[in-house]
Computed example of a mutant assay.
Amino acid sequence: MAAESAQTLERGLRLLRLLADGKNGRTPTELSAELSLSRPVVYRLLTTLMNEGFVRRDADGRVHLGFGVLVLAQAVQPLLRAAAMPALRRLAEEVGATAHLTVAEGDDGLAVAVVEPSWTDMHVAYREGSRHSLAKGAAGRAILGLREGRDDYFVTEGQLQEGARGVAAPVTGLSWLEASVGVVTFGPLEVSTGPRVVAAAAELAAALG
């Protein structure tokens, strides 16, 4: 019974992760094919998840994430922020630039934690809750790189704010989280910034793992 329950949970989580990829929902038949599960199994999973508000079906019968997922996300974000603060604070002080943790929400990146350096005369004001396309900026590019299996850092300039330079690296090794750690500044960045950002991302992954 325990093994069967664990298998059902694993299948349900895979289904939710599939729906979280930002596409325009899926039909039960598409879910069955992509998850390699029979349609009766998919329908049983959907019934349970719909009853709990985690998925919903539109007028065309396509399945989407439900608003119940938002409740879980709102509970997780403060935990992510608390876990990220030590690594971000150390990174901001070492590099002298605003450090941030960005998580993927569909095709967007959401800044859930931001730390500004204490000793610089000028730094980028980056607000928690800021949202931008994953296709723009180092933070989003790092998350897209994570989806492609990359674990190195990304550098961009002027994509989100004129004159601002960004460096970000993905948080790897956590199947339940698509996120990146990065810094942004108006000033020059040392060659060591990239490796330091990668180290901070690894530190956060270890704290969350």
Rank of each mutant, 00 (worst) to 15 (best):
G53R: 13
T102E: 05
R11H: 13
L189K: 05
A6D: 15
G109M: 00
R127M: 08
T120V: 15
T29V: 12
P78K: 13
L19F: 01
L31F: 08
A142Q: 01
D21M: 10
V95I: 14
E30L: 12
E10V: 14
G137R: 14
L18C: 07
G149Y: 10
L49A: 02
G68C: 06
A2M: 12
E30T: 07
R81L: 06
A3Q: 13
L18H: 11
L65F: 08
A169D: 01
Q161Y: 09
A135H: 12
R56L: 09
E162N: 09
S118P: 00
G209V: 00
L160D: 02
P40F: 12
R196A: 03
L208G: 00
V184L: 05
V112S: 00
A164Q: 12
V184G: 01
M122L: 14
G109T: 07
I143Q: 03
G145S: 04
E93D: 13
L19I: 10
Y126K: 14
N51P: 00
E162V: 11
F154T: 07
V63A: 03
R62Q: 09
L101Q: 01
L79P: 02
V155L: 15
A125V: 15
S192G: 02
V71R: 15
L110F: 06
T120C: 09
S38A: 10
A201V: 00
G61C: 08
E10W: 13
A113N: 08
A104E: 07
D58T: 09
S130M: 10
E94L: 11
Y153L: 07
E4G: 06
S36A: 15
E34G: 10
A2S: 13
L72W: 12
G158K: 11
L134D: 01
R11L: 02
V171K: 00
R141T: 03
A99G: 03
H100P: 00
G149M: 04
D152N: 05
A200R: 04
L208H: 02
M50N: 03
V183I: 12
D107M: 09
S192L: 11
D152R: 08
G140S: 09
E128T: 07
S36H: 14
T98A: 04
R90T: 06
S32F: 09
G182K: 05
A200I: 02
G182A: 01
L79K: 14
Y126N: 04
A2H: 15
A104S: 11
T98Y: 11
F154L: 15
R26G: 00
T8H: 11
S5R: 15
L37E: 12
T120F: 07
L45V: 04
R14N: 10
L110A: 02
G194I: 03
D108N: 13
D108G: 01
M85C: 05
G96D: 05
L88Y: 06
E105I: 12
S118W: 11
D58M: 12
S133W: 09
V103T: 10
V197C: 00
Q77T: 14
V171F: 01
M50L: 03
H123N: 06
S180M: 01
Q74D: 11
H132F: 08
G166W: 07
V41F: 03
A125T: 06
V198S: 00
R11W: 09
A201Y: 02
G106L: 03
